[in-house]
Computed example of a mutant assay.
Amino acid sequence: MSVPPESVTPPPPPPSDPVIAVPSAEERQWATFAHLSALAGLVMPFGSIIGPLVIWLIKKDTMPFVDDQGKEALNFNITVALAAVVCGLLCIVLIGFLLLPVLVILWLVFVIVGTIKANEGTLYRYPFALRLVN
């Protein structure tokens, strides 16, 4: 006995990553600010963490793109802050004096790339970042 084709239901689609709709101009602007606000670390202590944190906390519930990119910027800057502490400790054995400038240059480059990608509306992932804030 065979089952008629119209009574067969297709299997449900496999679960996938959450899809974020194409971000609006305002969402792109706030996501750009989330990445760019990390440069506040050049002016004030912990500014590279406080800037993205404030923007993410303000806009996370109303703008999904800013929620994603704000968390990404925050996680990256926390990771860089931890790496800077390690480099500072390694200054005792002199290797930190070489690693710290490299870290600062990488941080600047990746923040600028993240800012540009967010402005384009692209979901950007930093190449190395601890995912501490989910």
Score class of each variant (00 low, 15 high):
67 D>W: 02
84 A>V: 04
96 G>P: 09
83 A>W: 06
81 A>E: 11
64 P>D: 08
58 I>G: 08
83 A>N: 04
85 V>I: 15
75 N>G: 04
69 Q>H: 12
62 T>M: 05
59 K>Q: 15
63 M>Q: 13
66 V>D: 12
59 K>W: 01
60 K>L: 10
76 F>C: 04
86 V>H: 01
56 W>N: 07
69 Q>A: 10
91 C>S: 12
78 I>W: 03
85 V>S: 08
59 K>G: 06
76 F>D: 00
81 A>F: 14
56 W>M: 12
70 G>T: 13
67 D>I: 07
87 C>Y: 01
90 L>N: 01
94 L>N: 02
62 T>V: 13
70 G>C: 14
91 C>Y: 00
70 G>E: 08
67 D>H: 15
83 A>E: 02
60 K>N: 13
89 L>C: 13
92 I>A: 13
85 V>Y: 09
57 L>Y: 05
82 L>K: 04
85 V>K: 07
81 A>K: 05
95 I>R: 05
96 G>Q: 05
83 A>P: 02
78 I>D: 01
82 L>W: 07
96 G>E: 12
69 Q>E: 14
68 D>P: 04
61 D>N: 15
71 K>V: 04
96 G>L: 08
67 D>P: 02
69 Q>C: 08
63 M>V: 14
84 A>M: 14
65 F>K: 10
70 G>A: 13
56 W>P: 03
66 V>A: 10
61 D>A: 13
97 F>A: 06
88 G>N: 09
81 A>L: 13
87 C>S: 11
68 D>G: 09
90 L>C: 10
67 D>T: 02
86 V>A: 15
62 T>N: 13
64 P>N: 14
77 N>H: 11
67 D>A: 12
70 G>V: 08
73 A>P: 07
57 L>M: 15
83 A>D: 03
91 C>R: 07
88 G>D: 06
74 L>C: 11
87 C>R: 10
70 G>Q: 11
93 V>T: 10
66 V>K: 05
56 W>G: 09
68 D>E: 15
72 E>W: 07
64 P>L: 08
88 G>E: 01
86 V>S: 00
69 Q>Y: 08
87 C>E: 11
67 D>G: 09
67 D>C: 07
67 D>K: 14
89 L>Y: 03
91 C>E: 08
71 K>L: 12
58 I>W: 05
83 A>T: 09
74 L>A: 08
94 L>K: 02
70 G>K: 11
76 F>G: 04
61 D>Y: 00
74 L>R: 01
69 Q>P: 05
65 F>D: 11
71 K>G: 12
63 M>L: 15
80 V>M: 11
86 V>K: 01
65 F>Y: 14
64 P>M: 03
65 F>M: 13
63 M>S: 12
72 E>A: 09
94 L>Q: 04
96 G>W: 00
66 V>Y: 11
88 G>I: 00
60 K>A: 05
80 V>I: 15
57 L>H: 02
73 A>W: 01
70 G>M: 07
73 A>L: 13
61 D>L: 03
65 F>A: 08
87 C>T: 14
97 F>S: 10
59 K>N: 06
87 C>F: 14
78 I>K: 12
61 D>K: 14
79 T>P: 04
95 I>A: 07
56 W>L: 11
58 I>R: 10
67 D>L: 11
93 V>E: 02
56 W>T: 02
56 W>V: 02
87 C>G: 06
66 V>R: 04
